[in-house]
Design a protein around this nucleic acid. Structure first.
Ligand SMILES: [Mn+2]
Ligand SMILES: [Mn+2]
Ligand SMILES: [Mn+2]
Ligand SMILES: [Mn+2]
Lengths: 226, 226
DNA sequence: ATCCGGATTTAGGGTATCCGAATTTTGCTG
DNA sequence: CAGCAAAATTCGGATACCCTAAATCCGGAT
């Protein structure tokens, strides 16, 4: 109550809310500089927008400390996340996109599609639970599944695990990972590790490979389904 | 040459160019107030934008007279028109939209899709020549077919003609026309006319109907294909 | 307790887009 | 050709975002 006008939620606003959601979900504090880093904006721009969004009741801002989404902010963030992941899924399923090229397209379309279109795409896809990168798709009601698992960098040797989610947006890295067979659903076994920041040795359906530790940290694995 | 920065063509700019293209194509002068009317903006806003677009070389502006697209402006306008009509066609063909509901969605998506996505949609559709309303879809090179034909309001009595294009965006009117069977490709015969602004009497596959003269003017007809 | 460096915010500006009110121009019209 | 009304433009102002430079704050280290 109180809040009269839902007014225009602009593209900028949606991207800010999504970035803050992402940071919070990753367990990181949503600081001014973290948000600025994600959105590639200057810190003063973020301070200004944060102030506006707080006044609109979408954020709780503790000056000099950081921000958190309010319930209303979280709802809007999840709406945008849902659209983003549905668009990615649709483009891969029906329009010949691959997982390394969908992100930029979705980054724009997430702000342009109507609820109607989002739900039609979801229906065409059979209401998928995850997107091409293994990220869970929030429901239209704003529920979202937890992502659980262990980073490939921490998976014990000799255990066959399944790739659950690849937390990476860079197209080149995604193509590289796909070339190693490291895509959601694939089975992987860590066969060894080199010390001092060395690579993870692993076996996938695509063969045996050595993977740098930072990329390995972006790959979340879990027990193979059934 | 000369023009260095193509810079960001914003949504507003694309909509202005499209409106001016529409007026010019319809043979109407692209005056300040006509543009303002189409875009639902105030005349001073249009004057300001027209000035900016002229400086960018997209329009030729004769103060107090009107504007015309330059070659560059026309190219951008046709690009947006292509996207609009491809989006409409795609949504109808693949996502269960009907011709009365696609316009608003396309009005936003036309600004958000990449060239890549536009061409993938075109390919999925088999590179269609017209959209669901019978409007010709410009090619990626910026060629566009002429629309020829006679308004249903001027079709002589007793001649079977084919509906070519329905120049109408209002959802209710489009649903009404569809209910009378007046959609692109349908065969129609004018069976009579009432004078003094009275209706056109006509026969379609959906039966016999009386149609108001203003709607009849929005329906372009031609000789049935072979 | 004080200092310092990094993070954050404030100050001051800039662009794009829109508006209403006031003014100017134009194309009649008598 | 003076007078007028409609159309177009100019003027002044607002909002949303974004930036750089200059304070200011904060938490840890002396
Ligand atoms: Mn985005
Ligand atoms: Mn994704
Ligand atoms: Mn538009
Ligand atoms: Mn159309």
């Amino acid at each position: 109550m109180g809040a009269i006008a839902a007014q225009a939620v602009t593209r900028s606003v949606e991207d800010y809310l999504k970035a803050i959601y992402r940071l919070s979900t990753a367990g990181q504090p949503a600081t001014t500089s973290a948000i600025a880093g994600l959105l590639e904006l200057s810190p003063p721009s973020v301070t200004g927008m944060v102030k506006r969004l707080s006044e609109q009741g979408l954020l709780a801002h503790e000056p000099y400390r950081g921000v958190a989404l309010t319930a209303a902010g979280r709802r809007l963030a999840l709406r945008t996340v849902r659209r983003h992941r549905l668009v990615e899924s649709y483009l891969v399923a029906y329009l010949g996109y691959s997982w390394d090229t969908v992100h930029d397209e979705a980054e724009r379309l997430e702000h342009a599609i109507s609820d109607e279109l989002a739900e039609r795409m979801a229906a065409a896809l059979g209401n998928p639970g995850v997107d091409p990168h293994g990220d869970p798709i929030p429901t239209a009601d704003g529920d979202i599944a937890e992502v659980t698992g262990v980073p490939l960098s921490d998976v014990p040797e000799g255990v066959a695990v399944e790739v659950r989610r690849v937390d990476e947006h860079d197209a080149e890295r995604l193509r590289y990972l796909a070339s190693l067979g490291l895509v959601p659903g694939a089975l992987v076994t860590v066969t060894g590790r080199e010390p001092f920041g060395g690579p993870v040795m692993l076996r996938t359906p695509a063969g045996t490979h050595a993977l740098g530790p930072s990329l390995a940290g972006d790959i979340l694995c879990g027990r193979p389904a059934e």
